[in-house]
Design a protein around this nucleic acid. Sequence first.
DNA 1: TACAATTTAGAGTAAAATAGTCTTAATTAG
DNA 2: CTAATTAAGACTATTTTACTCTAAATTGTA
Lengths: 142, 142
Amino acid sequence: MLLTRASEYALLSLDIIRNSEKPQGAEQLARELSIPKSFLAKILQGLAKSNILESKKGAHGGFIMAKKVHEISIAEIIVAAEGKTPAVFDCSQYTDSCPNSAIGNCNISPFLATFQNKIDTFLQELTLEDIFNNEHLPSFSH
Amino acid sequence: MLLTRASEYALLSLDIIRNSEKPQGAEQLARELSIPKSFLAKILQGLAKSNILESKKGAHGGFIMAKKVHEISIAEIIVAAEGKTPAVFDCSQYTDSCPNSAIGNCNISPFLATFQNKIDTFLQELTLEDIFNNEHLPSFSH
DNA sequence: TACAATTTAGAGTAAAATAGTCTTAATTAG
DNA sequence: CTAATTAAGACTATTTTACTCTAAATTGTA
């Protein structure tokens, strides 16, 4: 799978946070979404580090949006949640077992690069605002 | 990652087989590509079952193309190699831990469906002929 | 000022997926 | 008949995913 639960939880959390006035705590969000609190806390930390969320420590603390929803791309959310760009196939991970030692330069590299680029572009052009407003999802008919 | 080594090995093997007159054996292909023979054999079996390759048993046996390269989509190669369609994120795998028990029907479902459909379409429209001929790779500029 | 509620950081763990291996059986050209 | 090959399926090792746990730092409020 291209995405893991980290991205799922990040997006579901952001959907709640964007609609809240007060800071939302990890525990509260975890309860509302029925997902593990410790795991969610880690993910929210990542979103805060990436300046998608702003965190408030201490009593009545929690997380609020650090930017407006139309200023946040889905790409940056996923990168923050996953800790890396979601890859179609990462040759560089297999440096010592690449057939022909042709990393990034074999016969299937152009295809992989095109495919990866297509995904990157799609995710960069979509904002957090778009995905909760179906009409704004880009069509894929052409 | 969306794809595993199975798809990589399948595509690299098909690139050799499509350019060969004689049936190519698993051992021969594995040597040429410097990849594990037993693993490759499994992948080639899958391609044969999916009617992408034709297998010839016995002495001087091996694999030849079962169809023309322009009749084989990249989608069907990947499905045959991976044993399933490559998924962006498969909710149905988490039936008993879906936040809100809203499988396929939560707030991020429309986004996931659109994303998945985009990938499916891209792979279905590409043929084995296309990917080794860079000029035919669809542009991603628009 | 003390305390309770919170985030932060980092190490640790269990389950699942990936990337293989190995063995035995079936088939077939020569 | 035999050597070369694919087919099938069980098995194993490594890596990734999906968490948990603990201790420390921060901060609003009594």
